[in-house]
Nucleic acid binder design. Structure first.
Length: 276
DNA sequence: TGTAATGCATAATGACCCAA
DNA sequence: TTGGGTCATTATGCATTACA
């Protein structure tokens, strides 16, 4: 019997189960977000749960496509779904829905009204694609530019070459936010987002406001909580996924997809843990 | 029977590293 | 500088299969 044909029960034996695998309750959350059965054509035989688990395996371990263990579907098949779901915008859509679910579970409005923005520069590997040099961080690669809500959910992300300044990348993020969470209009960021240029760019996009939290705030008395640690914590969470410790992708779109997947993984776990 | 969708191997391409 | 090697990504080809 081929490895790919083993039953779920066999697959669940300890020696084949991975920490990155989906628990039943987690799969229940994303199963409705998987592509529907097509009317025509050859019916799908591949178990999409295994496809998801294979992708989660890669995002957590950081292994190459070719190193995907044999009892997952063939890596070319998994890869096929990965890229197809990028084209369909499915990764972002899944993330969007899970963030809403998670917020509602925490008793918040589905749509956040405040976002905390920050970026992280990551080295790229030898697979080419768009990149640039971040002189400040001395890193040649790309920036992950994200906005979180006050709970630390990544509500929108943009990946761009690292030579783009934060204040120039921010409008790109704002544009993403606008299509995902139209009611989010207030951003909190660090000194990198200060200045009239960005303020003007945001004004053109709509009625955005941005609030700058300085790093060394020596205000006396009661200090407004610097919200910045929330984004930093989110970056730390994402950093646990080894696929993200370097940017090994050749395209911006797959780099963005892995970021979404890492976050999807975290939100799935979070919803599940607090369910009781 | 023809069509559309699927599974998946394989090749091609492009970028980059390394050693000679 | 060149040639070999690694990987991500894209393209291609072919066998399968449900359904009208």
């Amino acid at each position: 019997m081929a490895w790919t044909e083993i039953t779920r029960a066999q697959y669940r034996r300890d020696d084949l189960e991975y920490a990155s695998d989906l628990r039943d309750a987690e799969w229940a959350l994303i199963a409705p977000l998987m592509p529907e059965k097509k009317r025509l054509g050859r019916p799908r035989r591949t178990d999409l749960r295994r496809v998801m688990e294979a992708i989660l395996y890669i995002v957590t371990t950081g292994c190459q496509w070719r190193q995907l263990p044999r009892h997952f579907p063939a890596f070319t098949t998994v890869q096929g779904y990965f890229y197809r779901w990028i084209r369909e915008g499915r990764w972002e859509a899944i993330n969007h829905i899970l963030v809403i679910l998670s917020r509602e579970q925490d008793g918040r409005d589905a749509t956040p009204s405040v976002g905390i923005i920050d970026s992280q520069s990551v080295k790229t590997a030898e697979n080419g694609g768009p990149r640039g040099y971040d002189a400040g961080k001395k890193i040649r690669g790309r920036k992950r530019h994200i906005t979180t809500d006050t709970l630390g959910h990544v509500v929108a992300a943009v990946v761009h070459p690292a030579d783009i300044q934060d204040r120039d990348g921010a409008p790109l993020v704002a544009t993403r936010i606008r299509s995902l969470f139209p009611w989010l209009r207030h951003l909190i960021g660090d000194g990198g987002y200060a200045g009239e240029k960005l303020r003007g760019a945001l004004a053109e996009l709509g009625r955005w406001t941005i609030e700058i939290v300085k790093r060394s705030d020596r205000a006396e008395g009661f200090v407004v909580l610097p919200k910045r640690w929330i984004v930093e914590r989110s970056f730390a969470w994402l950093g646990r996924c080894r696929r993200l410790t370097k940017d090994v992708e050749a395209t911006i779109s797959s780099s963005h997809a892995w970021l979404m997947i890492a976050h999807i993984r975290r939100v799935l776990r979070k919803i599940n843990q607090t369910a009781f």
